[in-house]
Design a protein around this nucleic acid. Structure first.
Lengths: 323, 323
DNA sequence: ATACTTTTTGCAACCGGTTGCCGAACCCGA
DNA sequence: TCGGGTTCGGCAACCGGTTGCAAAAAGTAT
């Protein structure tokens, strides 16, 4: 029912190979012939079948994009950017959600493998060993996770955390709390290390916590107990939950406690108080990751780590320490 | 390099067709043989190539999911649910973002067509004519858009709007404003019609507006000018922007004006005041749309319209009219 | 043991493209 | 007019599976 290359060949009075070449190796066919073939193809509404093509070329022109949770507001901008960039390069992208389940993640990679040229793994929950093993089967690019020797896109939360701490100390805060994320998170580890290395300030670590508003809500008690007046939260969702939890205890932000989040999600820009936060360049990460992936798809051995800058955005959830 | 059906056949000492049947037509092969073949396959790490299979069967086991804007918080839950449901049925899904551009939308459908068994169109911006034409080429399911004779999943915003208006009148509001969305939006039209049909209340329509916080922000002046004390906004983003804009004018929500949004996005549940909103069952819509699509993929002629219930969630952005 | 079913398996064509190889047609200069 | 080099297009094998058909094997009835 669909029009194939043979239909076009018949209608144009040439061999299928000529039609094929008219599309994928123009210099090998007489311009005149080519024009005629293209015209006939257009006329018949012919569209090459990418899957069939992939069978011989080994290039599907598809990418896989695997994320822990599509609904986590951190990811959609990244997905959007990655998809747009892929499209620019004439690639389509499978998006898959693992629901934070490493098993599902591995399974997905396995079944996707034959249908894609490469996979973007965003904040994967798999073990390093598994990732290294899987790498034999298909090119990867990692986002937000570091595994030796693998192409990676990272966002410099360490620096962001330092800026955040400086911002807080600049406002007179001397005792800070870091509300950490899941224990396996690279981001969380980076934040902790950066904060711990700062001078002239007391830092306590509260966690691990689930990376959600509920996590923040639950951490409120600990924060109060810690006596900290400045808080760096694992992400904006946690920060928002935390502010909520503090309010329930009569602690007002930023009057009594200053709170900084990470990600710069939309929800933080709206609402009240507007969040001071470390903005993550998720869109850029998506774009760059796609380009790195495509590069390592045909370069065979490309690797490297790209570190993206983060920025501190000061809004309303931080203020001077009360003296 | 990858292990194919022929490798398995060789290793198991059988013909490729036997291997093929061991996977896709078990009843046609001796249980003993099958067990052996499966063991060898497992051993070699064989995974059937879906794309190759699609070539003969005509079933790719892939779906396309096309949305206007991945980053719009309305969509991620839908995408997530659709993806999960597809996975349950052993389907993979291409996600594509059109950036609100009808041209991109059509193009995407065209290039995706050969690689998928069906396409989910969410809030499409294409004309009815185009949609009907494209339908010849590939099965569709529409979400949030009505085209005669096409399988569709709708969410009952009309009823939601009626509930919202009743809620407001119940609080004593007698003059309402509806801040409408983009002019082509089915949702917006439904809301308007439902609101207009209500008795014992004055309704003015303000719009069209872009479906974003900025749209709401800009509409604040009109709302103030309208003298309305209750507002139904096109969606939560607009509602949040509107509340912001009203605040800038010294109008406090819900003290001076009550505001109701649509969608129940996360940003509305957090922040302050927490939004009273019409919750859209986006996850359910995603799930059901996928099932309808798969149904119409093999049933060839399935059609029908599914209307999903919406709910009014009362939070903090609505209150009694001042007397 | 024979003839007739019913399973089980192999053969080969096919899905829709791509590509190495070879011959035909063409071009050029001598 | 002829030899040699290009350009162009056809042939056929191949990618990794599926499937209709028929042969072989196994089971059953006589």
């Amino acid at each position: 029912m669909a029009v194939t290359i043979r239909d076009v060949a018949r209608a144009a009075g040439v061999h299928v190979s000529t039609v094929s070449r008219s599309f994928s190796a123009p210099h090998l066919v007489n311009p005149e012939t080519r024009t005629r073939v293209l015209a006939v193809a257009e006329d018949l509404g012919y569209r090459p079948n990418r899957a069939a093509r992939a069978l011989t070329t080994g290039r599907t022109h598809n990418l896989g994009l695997i994320v822990a949770d599509i609904a986590n507001p951190f990811f959609p901008p990244l997905i959007k950017a990655a998809q747009a960039q892929a499209r620019l390069r004439d690639y389509h992208v499978f998006v898959a959600d693992t629901d934070e389940d490493p098993k599902a993640e591995e399974d997905l990679i396995q079944t996707l493998t034959k249908q894609v040229d490469g996979v973007l793994l965003c904040s994967p929950r798999l073990t390093n060993r598994t990732i290294e093993r899987l790498r034999e089967e298909i090119p990867f690019v990692l986002v937000n996770r570091r595994v030796k020797g693998m192409p990676t896109v990272l966002m410099d939360v360490g620096r962001g955390a330092r800026l955040a701490v400086e911002h807080l100390t600049g406002l007179g805060h001397r005792r800070l709390a870091v509300v950490t994320g899941p224990s396996g998170s690279w981001t969380s580890k980076e934040m902790q290390e950066a904060a711990a290395a700062m001078n002239e300030v007391d830092v306590v670590f509260l966690g691990p916590n689930p990376p959600t508003e509920l996590g923040g809500l639950a951490a409120a008690a600990d924060v109060v107990a810690s006596g900290a007046t400045g808080v760096l939260a694992y992400n904006d969702l946690v920060a928002i939950g935390l502010i909520e939890g503090l309010a329930e205890r009569g602690v007002e932000v930023p009057r009594d406690v200053s709170v900084i989040g990470v990600d710069d999600i939309v929800a933080g820009r709206l609402g009240r108080p507007k969040l001071t936060t470390i903005a993550m360049p998720t869109a850029a990460a998506g774009r760059i990751a796609v380009d790195m992936l495509l590069q390592s798809v045909d370069a065979e051995a490309a690797t490297g780590v790209t570190m993206l800058e983060t920025t501190l955005i000061v809004r309303e959830s931080t203020g001077e320490a009360r003296t």
